[in-house]
Design a protein around this nucleic acid. Structure first.
Lengths: 219, 219
DNA sequence: TCCTCGTAGTACCGTACGGTACGGTTCCGT
DNA sequence: ACGGAACCGTACCGTACGGTACTACGAGGA
């Protein structure tokens, strides 16, 4: 685990403060507002220091992604025994957290930034964002999947595929819509409940809770 | 129906050719490659004509979206009687078409463009893209939903919600990943089959095909 | 005290873009 | 044949950005 963390270069406190300002500028005004001059002015540093620390503008953007990823820490599943209700609760918590993260302003701004850069061939920002930003939450979900299967609560042939099913049920096209500027949901928890209900109808081991065709009966 | 089409300004053949070139430039080199000078050079027109026709650069981008939307035409469901197999086939065809559209280069480029502009407050591109690009395919899917319900083949309390469920099952996080630069699926048809299978397990009226908890058994 | 290192602040350069202006040309109606 | 509208090609302007160079200044060490 420490080996994984060592491959991302850590920055000095001063540099972290500068990166924090950079994220703030990006969130407030979009990519166009994030200029080297503007960042130097806002962070009370010199452009020369920026180029010394981060190489060039792309290096700065990559550093911002790495820095933001280093801030997001997700909790591992507690090691206790897993019941059906506990699994459902963990899944719903995961769904709420996922929606919360995806609708966060910093996340949206960084995704917009990476997507805007994605057309360029040599851009590694998209890859970086997927690797750093998603790996944590993906591992947490897949861990949950396999724990559920080991406990006899879930049935699926492929944990990865099952996770993508859960992801789609939770997020649907919401992420893209928010990236395009639409507002998020009013109630993330409700969406998470619906998604987990459907997911358990598909992959839950016990169908005795409700009929499979009666999903969303509470709507 | 004609009233809906009349609100989008149609362009002359010459202007359509220019917009086609603009899309080509955008797909090839991203937003940065789409400059007024470059477009004028590539399309053998003058910058003055561009500004006369489209007002300013944002008008050009909006015109590109409208033009592309005018090219995409989706088929309505044929009026014949709906059986379970026919519904499944229509749903799978919809899924394949949806994946095909979303993974298209022009679609990805326009989405990247609109997302890049989405941070600016006054940008209507995201709204435009959702309205023009999605309305057609959304209507087709929701029509399919309600036809299925009328035929007693589907059960759901809310067609819109059911459609979003189907959408999530089909697309999952694929759209965002492709926007970030990842490659699409190898087999869209297989993904559509899986998604429709799961969707019918959730909302299909006849659960006798297979047990609800045994989805994806063929994987 | 003096030297060195790191950094802030600023001035500067080359480039590229959006947008405008203008001369020359083609095409159409009369 | 004439006149005007539309349009192409190009030159031009103001601006703003990425990146570099240079000076000033404060901290720490010999």
């Amino acid at each position: 685990m420490t080996a994984e963390l060592s491959d991302m270069p850590e920055f000095s406190p001063r540099q972290n403060a500068v990166l924090e300002q950079a994220l703030k500028l990006l969130v407030d005004g979009g990519e166009k507002a994030l200029t080297t001059s503007g960042l130097a002015r806002a962070a009370n540093c010199s452009k020369e220091s920026l180029y010394k620390w981060f190489g060039d503008r792309d290096g700065l953007l990559a550093a911002m992604i790495a820095y933001q990823a280093s801030k997001v820490r997700t909790f591992e599943r507690s090691g206790g025994r897993l019941t059906a209700d506990l699994l459902r609760e963990h899944l719903e918590t995961f769904g709420r957290d996922l929606l919360e993260v995806l609708s966060g302003e910093v996340s949206l701004a960084l995704n917009r930034l990476a997507i805007g850069q994605a057309s360029r061939e040599g851009s590694k920002l998209g890859r970086l964002l997927i690797e750093h930003g998603r790996r944590q939450i993906d591992r947490r979900a897949i861990g949950l999947m396999e724990a559920g299967r080991r406990a006899g609560l879930l049935r699926f042939p492929d944990a990865d595929s099952a996770y993508h099913t859960l992801y789609g049920l939770i997020v649907s096209d919401l992420h893209v819509r928010m990236l395009l500027g639409e507002n998020g949901l009013k109630d993330n928890a409700r969406q998470a409940e619906r998604a987990v209900h459907a997911f358990l109808s598909l992959h839950g081991a016990s169908q005795n809770t409700e009929g499979a065709g009666r999903a969303h009966s509470d709507a």
